[in-house]
Design a protein around this nucleic acid. Sequence first.
DNA 1: TGTAGGGCTGTTCACGTTAACAGGCATGCT
DNA 2: AGCATGCCTGTTAACGTGAACAGCCCTACA
Lengths: 348, 348
Amino acid sequence: MAKRPDNGAPANARAPRRSPGMVDVARLAGVSHMTVSRVINDQPTVSQVTRQRVLAAMSELGYRPNVAARALVTGRTRTLGVISVDTTLYGPASMLLAIERAAREVDYSVSIASLPSLERRTLRDAFDALASQAVEGIIAITPHVAATAALRHVPKDVPVVAVEGGKGPLPTVAVDQYLGASEATRHLLSLGHRSVGHIAGPSDWYEAQERERGWRDVLVAEGRAVPEVVRGDWSPRSGYAAAKQLLEKKTKVTALFVANDQMAIGALRALGEAGISVPRQMSLVGFDDIPEAEFFSPPLTTLRQEFSDVGRRSLELLLEQVEGAPRTRRRLVIPPQFVIRDSTSAPE
Amino acid sequence: MAKRPDNGAPANARAPRRSPGMVDVARLAGVSHMTVSRVINDQPTVSQVTRQRVLAAMSELGYRPNVAARALVTGRTRTLGVISVDTTLYGPASMLLAIERAAREVDYSVSIASLPSLERRTLRDAFDALASQAVEGIIAITPHVAATAALRHVPKDVPVVAVEGGKGPLPTVAVDQYLGASEATRHLLSLGHRSVGHIAGPSDWYEAQERERGWRDVLVAEGRAVPEVVRGDWSPRSGYAAAKQLLEKKTKVTALFVANDQMAIGALRALGEAGISVPRQMSLVGFDDIPEAEFFSPPLTTLRQEFSDVGRRSLELLLEQVEGAPRTRRRLVIPPQFVIRDSTSAPE
DNA sequence: TGTAGGGCTGTTCACGTTAACAGGCATGCT
DNA sequence: AGCATGCCTGTTAACGTGAACAGCCCTACA
């Protein structure tokens, strides 16, 4: 791209010696390059003495197998890709971490591609970036319904596992958001609250939809009023704004189910500013159990998602496809864990 | 590794057709594979008509360049590696995200390797994992002093940039922790506090050391008493424990500089439980400005680190090395930004 | 008209590895 | 002794791409 002269520079300090290859090792060990290959790949048909000699030569030369050459001939890269939304969020970050750890354990490396926004175009870009690297499989942490939908229109020549995606044709790992939301709502009702308000996540997120649905269904089933939903974008700031907005409404409520912990801390702040005491005047339940939740004021009742579990499971599912059976259409659902702390109580 | 029969299965539904290569495109377009190569690499010496024909053939066949073959012949992989500690923390996660975005923009892909613990052995493993993939450069987000030290003993054939590492032989990008800590401490003193307590981070973290040093130096310079430090591990829980421990000590203090925001929320909780009002009876300053900090009760005065900036800069530094000059020994220091909110005030 | 030169295209080779097959050399059996 | 067998090792041929060089044709100029 950049035009350089590239000719008038005789000072070729670029590559004084290129890195040693199998032939170099072979020469030093007095064997053929093929024997070196066999040693590297742990094939049993090499005598102990030869193996030792080769090993010695390898370490003397600081030999490293050339992955490109290997990939070229085997057609396998032992690389996996992870597509993820904003990896700054606690959930995606934890999953990514777990995936990488588990992958390295079985000798796969992990490439990442983040998703700046939620357009379909963007998912394609991320997918292509990964596919161009010849990853052998992709885990898509794409909680937007739009993104999950876009996943269906993606080339089928590379295995994909969706995490937290809606129901689709792909193997999926997800936490049971609906169940968690139901539990939260039922818990609040059982404490004696007449109804429960809801600060929801962005409407195009699968998780937000499910949590809202779980909440709504319980209220309806129990014959309670269903207050109007206020919506945030998962950020503490939006939770703050949502709670403020909620307080201005006529519909008074004594309990609030907030779709994630970050918004909950914003809500907590807004409630504090309005002089409303939690849980005395308002009960609050969050979702996620981020490490901070236990130390909110008051400590937050919430639903714990085992993100690292989700990450590990999604990798398992992916490897199944990469190494084995052609198409699994499994959907793995992991229940969240209800953690009761001090932000919920009976109404005054 | 796994022994399969692999012979008695005539149903070879494995690879009905292998993916098309340059020769296939070339044949379809009626040119040589070399012309296809030229089109792909945007070389100007291809006529418009030919180029169009090749392009058409490529898209008809769904051709994707084979990165392995390309890497084999060029010796370049256009892959970068990021080694990072616990990417669940807000800082590392933000940097990783910024790095990936910036890298993709210039057509590099990013592989990750996490660091389970802080032993030197582990850093070597991570480094090796990346090096075996033939990454062209590595960004090491390794705030442990031990890890940074270990970085020195790493093969020199691949460019490395250290992020938040101590002073060493490597190019480095870091936030000025010392400056931030000084500012925080001076701010508290200027409000009228006699001295300032400190909840420090783990002693083997470079950032923790610098923040402690900045705090201590200001106290000493101003001739104030230097209270004993209590140490946490960055987690909210440890901040909670540290604050509790601090309250039991005889040395009473009216202001506290906490080494990060997560510990600050733990401390806030402990203070709350002890009936100590912030900022009336105790002023508090954190570090990082995580998104939640603004919504603590009360909103936290803290030092903002522009993590995405750090990430972007470190990538620039790395690319300089990868693509250009042989050895930069630059150290880029970014000042943090002091954000005053409601957790600090004059003492009662 | 001859020829130099530029624009465009093709041929050949090398990159470092694994797959497939071909031995060589003992050993053990008939 | 002859031959099969098993263990170990080597030879050769891909894999798909880019670098280097060679050559074609057409134009411009002497």
